[in-house]
Simulated scan of single mutants.
Amino acid sequence: GLQSENERLKVKISEIRLIDRAKCILIQYLNMSEPQAHRYIEKQAMDLRVTKKEIAESILKTYEL
């Protein structure tokens, strides 16, 4: 039980890091504020019916070489 909970939390932390990196890219390249970047990722996830993680991955793919 404890080990599976620990694993679940590790996955959640890695997702949050990924989303934060995507937010930083939006801030850097598109001159968004942090709340604007957060809202953009959330809205894209809702509109496209995918997870925030998938949106973050596509942002990273677009802007990172």
Rank of each mutant, 00 (worst) to 15 (best):
M46Y: 11
Q3S: 04
I55K: 06
L9A: 08
E57H: 05
G1T: 05
L65T: 05
E64V: 06
C24V: 06
I59T: 08
S33Q: 14
K43L: 07
C24K: 15
I59S: 13
R17M: 04
R21P: 04
K10W: 05
V50M: 15
R21A: 07
A45S: 05
Q44A: 00
D20L: 07
S4A: 08
I41M: 05
S14F: 01
K52W: 12
L26W: 09
L65C: 12
I41G: 01
G1W: 07
S4Q: 09
K23G: 10
M46H: 15
E64I: 08
M46K: 15
L9M: 09
A56Q: 02
Q28W: 15
I25Y: 00
S4I: 09
K12R: 14
Q3R: 05
E5L: 11
P35K: 01
S14H: 08
Q44N: 01
I19W: 00
Q44W: 01
E15A: 06
K23H: 01
I55G: 03
V11S: 04
D47K: 12
L18A: 04
R49F: 11
I19C: 02
K43E: 06
A37E: 12
S4Y: 08
D20V: 02
N6M: 12
L18H: 03
S33D: 13
R21G: 11
L26G: 13
Q44K: 05
D47F: 09
V50E: 14
D20W: 02
L30T: 08
A56L: 12
L30F: 12
R8M: 04
E57K: 06
R8F: 01
K10N: 14
I27S: 06
K53V: 09
Q36W: 07
K43G: 01
L48K: 15
P35F: 00
N31H: 15
M46P: 00
E57P: 08
L9Y: 13
Q36S: 15
A37T: 06
